[in-house]
Design a protein around this nucleic acid. Structure first.
Lengths: 253, 253
DNA sequence: CCAAAAGTGTTGCAATTACACCCATGC
DNA sequence: GCATGGGTGTAATTGCAACACTTTTGG
């Protein structure tokens, strides 16, 4: 077993792989049926829950770092992640790095940059939480899903980050390009409807909703229906890819 | 006069004041009458124009860094800057740091981080370009305003950054909170109208525009009018501050 | 055959658009 | 007095919200 000083140099060497003073914070929303949830971790020796965070490798794009961090926390691959804000406040920290390692009897070098000021780049994703079995990794005690409206208070400024991500998720719903990335390729209209209701946290008229989606030419109906469920089988839809290039379209006088 | 090695150590020491591998990029839009322009710099010994960029001090928030960079390029104080995106591509550089300093016979240390990979946090601002006399600073040959639709090709990925900023500026117009920061406190309706036309690059019906602004209760008319111009004197308006807290308001079914 | 979910159509209101006239000022 | 720009009103249209019935399926 290595000595403290040996471990210390390992930690220093480990940190040298990453861009200093930078992190990615992932706000992972989970959706199924009508429930919207949030993926949280509890670090070893910590008393509060926090977002999954990670650092950026020297030869890795920020987007790729977000993908890698999400994968290492959830096992999910090729999920669409959207960057939404960089948090650059002077006093902010996004992890209790020192306490985590010293609780494992690893002394943290005083100049280790995660113990100082960190700029975090926030990403959000929406996944089906039934398909993700969160498992705690090396530095976490626990990882689990919380209802978005029943989540605990989070560590550091993570409550603010979640609120920001939620606002962006909501506003992404009326941009077809973004909305298309939030569901699997094929989905039913009731599923899309429940997604909108859960994200916006309000009721939407089922019939008007379907009409709007079709009139705006955002989705197209496939010949198949979803079989297996009880009751009448709903049609399957997919987003019209050629319409997604339109991008921003704003109201004008 | 200091030797090369002396200068080198000065440069190294200078860089140590900043968070490594990070920069802020400012997209400064200028507006007056009906013209929308863009502030660009040309670095010494460079052939192409680029955005004003700068680094983040160790004990300075990212927002404060953006303010400082903008001030040092334009002399402007207390301008509202909005963060819009972090650019974290693997191969991106936001300045030709080495060439700039070596052209001044300052040798750049091989490990100087600006010569490697940089993550840029983008900010945009809108100012009255008649009130800003751009003056080149120490590292720039020239600084000037270009029409937004007649701008030259820019260095590095700055064209992409400008396009992104322009999209955000456009979409900020229908968020009252953001729109309020883009004009001086008191303005006339025709001024607000021309601003929207210039930013959106399309014609807006003068009468419908005014009606919407008033019906939505975004602005309030002041008793005074703008005097001095030719023709009928227009009223002055200001944004209703108490309405600005509303924030995001989206259409729902 | 009945409960529960999915599909479709109509109607009224509200918001946006298109459009025309009057007022003020400088030359 | 006339050209130019600024202020206001009205009709037509469009998009959205409210609402009820029919169809399918499993039990």
């Amino acid at each position: 077993m290595p000595s403290d000083s040996r471990r210390l140099s390992v930690l220093t060497k480990e940190l040298a792989q990453y861009l200093p003073h930078l992190s990615v914070d992932c706000v992972v929303f989970g959706f199924h049926n009508s429930d919207l949830k949030l993926l949280l971790l509890k670090w070893k020796n910590a008393s509060v829950w926090q977002l999954p965070v990670g650092y950026i490798r020297n030869r890795e794009s920020v987007d790729a770092a977000a993908q890698r961090v999400l994968r290492s926390r959830t096992g999910l691959r090729s999920v669409h992640l959207s960057q939404f804000h960089a948090f650059g406040g002077l006093k902010r920290k996004e992890s209790d790095f020192r306490r985590c390692f010293e609780s494992q009897h690893v002394e943290t070098p005083p100049d280790a940059w995660p113990t100082h000021r960190v700029v975090s780049i926030g990403y959000y994703a929406l996944v089906d939480f039934l398909e993700v079995r969160p498992r705690p990794d090396g530095i976490s005690d626990a990882a689990s899903w919380f209802p978005i409206n029943g989540r605990p208070r989070l560590a550091f400024d993570h409550d603010e980050i979640v609120q920001w991500a939620l606002d962006m998720l909501r506003s992404s719903l009326d941009s077809p390009k973004a909305a298309a990335t939030l569901l699997p390729e094929r989905f039913t209209m009731p599923e899309l409807h429940r997604l909108h209701e859960a994200v916006l946290d309000c009721r939407l008229d089922r019939r008007n909703f379907q009409k709007r989606m079709l009139e705006r030419d955002l989705v197209e109906r496939l010949p198949e229906r979803r079989i297996g469920g009880a009751h009448r089988a709903p049609y399957l839809y997919r987003f019209k890819t050629h319409r997604l290039d339109a991008g921003f379209q704003r109201r004008r006088a």
